[in-house]
Write a protein that binds this DNA or RNA. Structure first.
Length: 244
DNA sequence: AATTGTTGCAACCGCTGTCAT
DNA sequence: GATGACAGCGGTTGCAACAAT
């Protein structure tokens, strides 16, 4: 007989689940996701826990719209590497592969629409990947380019990608080349790589004790008892980083 | 105000790579 | 070297929020 509680949960995460996950990651680090999923009592897969952490709960994440210089960097890096989202994401601290992927998809959609609009009414049917200026065989998904010169597409050359704060694309490329030579980084502490974040030990002696209690509390109750301020601080951290 | 279309984003799925045994 | 477990990646989907009609 299978208990309902044992069923693997899917779909949107609740605040309570988030809090739980954050605290378990603080206790055990952000590596052994199957283990984390198990000990947390969250009826989620390790995979799901990892995704939630990486894409939403990670303290180093930025929130909000991509800045122009970030957008330009995505263009440049995509032109160089294609759909290597995680690789691109490593060069944009605080941004996730998922976020960049979504941004790119949206961007391509807009471009497709602009292309469609620019075409004569007689020749336009529906917008497909084939109507995109950089589409190749048509076998790729519509935002999968893998290497058109996006800078040229945008009507700019690389030297014009002068980002704010006097940080030029040349500087960025140098940075990229240098960092590629030092890809192995210490596991401890947050690094530029984003994914190498390993939380400092924040285990609270009372935390284990609270575990069961917490899981039985409803949303309102948990707000009163849980280290919510600690949880919020991660989101605040992310928001603060947007504002500089 | 109601309906329909569009957009943005969170989350899942399936596959591949890596590592320990 | 073979195998299994797990982490990570890229593609895709579903849905809520918003805009347009």
């Amino acid at each position: 007989m299978k208990m309902v509680q044992d069923e693997i949960r899917k779909g949107p995460w609740t605040e309570k689940e988030d809090i739980l996950l954050v605290n378990v990651v603080h206790l055990f680090g952000d590596r052994r996701w199957d283990y984390i999923a198990k000990v947390s009592g969250l009826n989620r897969t390790g995979k799901s826990c990892r995704l939630r952490w990486v894409n939403y709960l990670h303290p180093g994440l930025k929130r909000g719209k991509m800045r122009p210089q970030e957008e330009r960097l995505v263009m440049e890096l995509h032109a160089k590497w294609g759909n290597r989202w995680s690789r691109i994401a490593r060069k944009l601290p605080g941004r996730t592969d998922n976020e960049i992927k979504n941004y790119w998809r949206t961007h391509m959609r807009k471009m497709a629409q602009e292309t469609k609009r620019a075409m004569s009414p007689s020749s336009s049917t529906t917008t497909t990947v084939d109507s995109l200026p950089f589409s190749g065989t048509g076998k790729v998904s519509f935002y999968d380019t893998g290497g058109p010169d996006m800078a040229a597409l945008a009507g700019k050359n690389s030297s014009e990608f002068q980002v704010e704060k006097g940080y030029s694309m040349d500087d960025i490329w140098k940075d990229i080349e240098m960092s590629e030579e030092n890809t192995i980084k210490p596991l401890s502490n947050y690094s530029e790589e984003g994914r190498n974040f390993s939380c400092p030990s924040m285990a609270s002696p009372s935390w284990e004790y609270c575990w069961d209690l917490l899981w039985k509390m409803d949303e309102e109750e948990s707000k009163m008892f849980l280290p919510t301020n600690q949880f919020l601080s991660y989101n605040e951290y992310g928001r603060a980083s947007i504002n500089g």
